[in-house]
Simulated assay, not measured.
Amino acid sequence: MSALEAVRSRQSWSKVDDTAPTREQLLTFVAAAGRVADHSSLRPWRLIELRGADREVLGAAIAKAEGDKSPSAKPLRAPLLIAVVASYRKSDKVPRWEQEAVASGVAHMLSLLLDEAGWGVLWRTGHYTRTKAVAKAHGLGPNEELLGWLYVGAKPARRKPGRRKAVDARKLVTRMPSKTEQVETKAKKKKK
């Protein structure tokens, strides 16, 4: 399968079976995903592998963050969760937003690689990703933020992936405005 075909066929899998890639398989995918564009090669990211009881610890942390008495069952929806952490580095050349973009790029690339290898993947986020209880459960440092988790498991044979709307690239790719268009836009703004 070509990279184009893999990207075009990618789907989110909200329900997966109880099998996951091994640690060695995961490390192979992470080594490849880490090749994303990374200004100054800062590697401003890290991943945390959650399996088994780790998911229950996360469920308790989410419950604490939400003020719930019972642990959240969300982390139990997949056998492997991969926490995506932006791990910011000091840099005069690479701003914080760009470092977060690199961490996001690694997560997206990893999700594509896992999907192409036959695994079901869903990137989950939520307001509790930035809470103290969840950060503490993950052992985050002062210069780190949790961006979310990749939920990974076997694609159920009995279920087909959902259909995604096609992207109309013509509506999303534009050209740089001409000098005339820039002058006209500026004149319209002055009139307001």
Rank of each mutant, 00 (worst) to 15 (best):
S2Q: 06
L4H: 11
E5M: 02
E5T: 11
R8N: 10
S9K: 09
Q11K: 14
S12K: 01
W13M: 00
V16A: 01
D17K: 10
D18T: 13
A20G: 00
R23G: 07
E24S: 15
L27N: 14
T28W: 11
F29V: 05
F29E: 04
V30R: 04
A31N: 12
R35H: 12
D38N: 13
R43T: 12
R43S: 12
R46W: 06
R46E: 01
A53L: 12
D54C: 12
R55M: 03
R55N: 04
E56P: 04
V57C: 02
V57Y: 04
G59E: 00
A60Q: 15
G67I: 07
G67P: 05
D68G: 00
D68T: 05
S70G: 01
P79E: 12
L80E: 08
A86M: 02
A86G: 04
S87G: 04
Y88M: 13
S91R: 08
V94G: 06
P95K: 12
P95S: 05
E100V: 14
V102M: 03
S104W: 06
A107N: 03
L110Y: 01
E116K: 07
W119H: 10
R124H: 06
T125F: 00
H127R: 13
A133G: 09
P142A: 14
E144F: 10
E144I: 09
L146W: 08
K155L: 01
P156M: 01
A157I: 06
K160E: 15
G162L: 07
D168P: 05
R170T: 14
L172M: 13
L172I: 12
R175C: 09
P177G: 02
P177H: 00
E181M: 01
E184D: 11
T185A: 14
A187S: 10
